[in-house]
């Protein structure tokens, strides 16, 4: 998908360049400005993620949300998913491994859902654009919603 975005960006950028060079210069300036505006936050996030991932590895997570962890396991899974920020292509295989290791579908559902929808680490970045209050509301709602997701996944996939 990154390839698709590169192709789309390259084609449109070339088009822009041939149509109006001055405007294309503006495109680059805007792109850079938008990027630089948020770069310090990006850098802090990836440093924090590095430390966190070094501390919370798959073994630790599978201990927390194992087979018979029940609703407490779902809550813990949701909390772990909220505070961690793992790229999808690591997160999904990890989740699959956790399932194999005996974690329940409901727990994995909660983990995957909050992982993607709730961002504790990215809170300052989100608040920069949406304000603290709205960011708090959005994350709380996404957190609560993840329990519904977990329950339905447990029902449909896990045969609860």
């Amino acid at each position: 998908m990154a390839e698709f975005l590169y192709i789309a960006a390259a084609v449109l950028f070339a088009l822009s360049f041939f149509k109006d060079r001055k405007k294309t210069g503006m495109v680059l300036k805007k792109a850079w400005k938008a990027f630089e505006h948020i770069l310090p936050e990006f850098l802090v996030i990836i440093l924090l993620v590095g430390v966190m991932m070094a501390l919370i590895n798959p073994e630790v997570i599978s201990k927390i949300i194992g087979v018979d962890s029940g609703w407490l396991g779902v809550v813990l899974a949701a909390v772990v998913g909220s505070i961690t920020l793992i790229p999808g292509f690591i997160a999904f295989p990890t989740a699959a491994m956790l399932l194999e290791g005996g974690a329940g579908y409901m727990q994995i559902g909660a983990f995957v859902s909050t992982l993607m929808m709730v961002g504790v680490i990215t809170f300052p970045v989100e608040a920069k654009y949406f304000g603290k209050k709205l960011t708090l509301y959005r994350n709380l709602m996404a957190f609560a919603f993840s329990f519904l997701v977990a329950y339905i996944i447990g029902l449909v996939v896990g045969g609860l």
Binding site: Y6, A9, F35
Partner: peptide, 19 residues
């Protein structure tokens, strides 16, 4: 990962903004 994924997103953002 960031260096790989973000450039096209910000270029598209710039194109959207200008055009």
């Amino acid at each position: 990962e960031m260096a790989l994924v973000l450039p096209p997103i910000f270029i598209l953002l710039g194109l959207l903004d200008v055009w």
